[in-house]
Design a protein around this nucleic acid. Sequence first.
DNA 1: ACCTGAACACCGTTCAAGT
DNA 2: ACCTGAACACCGTTCAAGT
Lengths: 233, 233
Amino acid sequence: MTATDDESDSVRIPLNRDRVLGAAVSIADSDGIDAVTMRRVGQELGVEAMSLYNHVANKDDLLDGMVETIVDEVIEMVATQDPPETPDDWKRAARDRILSAREVMLAHPWAPAVIETRTDMTPELVRYFDGLLGILLAGGMTFDLGHHAMHALGSRALGFSQRLFVPDDAHESSGSEVREMEIEFPNLAGMLTAVSHDGGEPVLGWCDDQTEFTFGLDLILDGLDLLRAAATR
Amino acid sequence: MTATDDESDSVRIPLNRDRVLGAAVSIADSDGIDAVTMRRVGQELGVEAMSLYNHVANKDDLLDGMVETIVDEVIEMVATQDPPETPDDWKRAARDRILSAREVMLAHPWAPAVIETRTDMTPELVRYFDGLLGILLAGGMTFDLGHHAMHALGSRALGFSQRLFVPDDAHESSGSEVREMEIEFPNLAGMLTAVSHDGGEPVLGWCDDQTEFTFGLDLILDGLDLLRAAATR
DNA sequence: ACCTGAACACCGTTCAAGT
DNA sequence: ACCTGAACACCGTTCAAGT
């Protein structure tokens, strides 16, 4: 073995799976998931697209790996958090975990959609859910209630929920459009004018995502806590 | 105008937007959303792919139209249902509406994923949400609570929720794998053995989707009802 | 063992040409 | 006004060939 064979001395860093996944994640972060093509990932690494196939099986495997990377980030972030100290502390612990996951998802806006398309659970995903379920069980939930709880949380467990009211930024609502909306959609029109007093403009898309996320999360956690208390009492 | 110019007498049905959307929906229903390509839709209609551009602006517009079609189906189904008779009846009415939407989504399994990718609200989607919000308001919710409620329901309002525990049908869990899982994922392993007594096998994917959906839905509706009652009391 | 170049079978979409 | 054929710029992926 010569000095030039030593990896640490070599100038060109050898390609490996992690570097491929890292490049893909960074492209998705900056340019969106559609920009993640095999050719583009290769280009980012100074290599032809075909070389990637030595480190990932195919595009699907690349996407699996990207999810893996993001969930690892969540797991690492969550590892430092306090476990529930008493059974009654379960809600706080679950809430902290889920809000941390949400922070990671906000940093990788493409991740939720990709996670949803994955047909297989990655081991990292299973590990995260196992930890969250552990908190529910520590709160005194039965296996059965814990199971229902995981389903009820759904994707909220990972810090995201699909928002159907998407902001329509380009849409400036003129006076006549508002009038028109009042006739066709009276309830939404009323809601928009009633709730938009606090600094926002009367358009769809004015909602505070963080507020709405925690409202929905607490609604579910509070409901689960009632069921838990009823069963353990 | 001659007899052959008359549309009703003509043997070849003229192409139009609705026929294009109908063909696309039927392809997606039978072969999945990935099978919906411009060439395939054209083929189904006995026409070249390029002809479709006379009736839809592009692929994105085609997908918008497909969503339009499915949401119309929901709206039609929901039109026959009883509105809430008393304020206290709001929960029943909302529940019925959402479970009807769910039936439509189950008939078009590709629809939820496509709906989530749409950036703009279609008018049909707005109409559906306006109707649902109307039920909440009829129950005596404030605009503010109604607004939170719509967000808390999220995609459940349209009858679907993203299931993160996807069934892994191909995965037969051998004895050694179960043993391995018990070490790495003790909580999930415990849950699976505890809850799977009722006829199912101890694998991910044994869950009754309908049961879990209604559990989560009722959890949210019950929580909202408490908030509503507290505010109107 | 890893990387490359050329090629293949697909996409969505354009454009000039037909009727 | 509507449809077509050929073409273009992209995809993911294969395969034989290089080192």
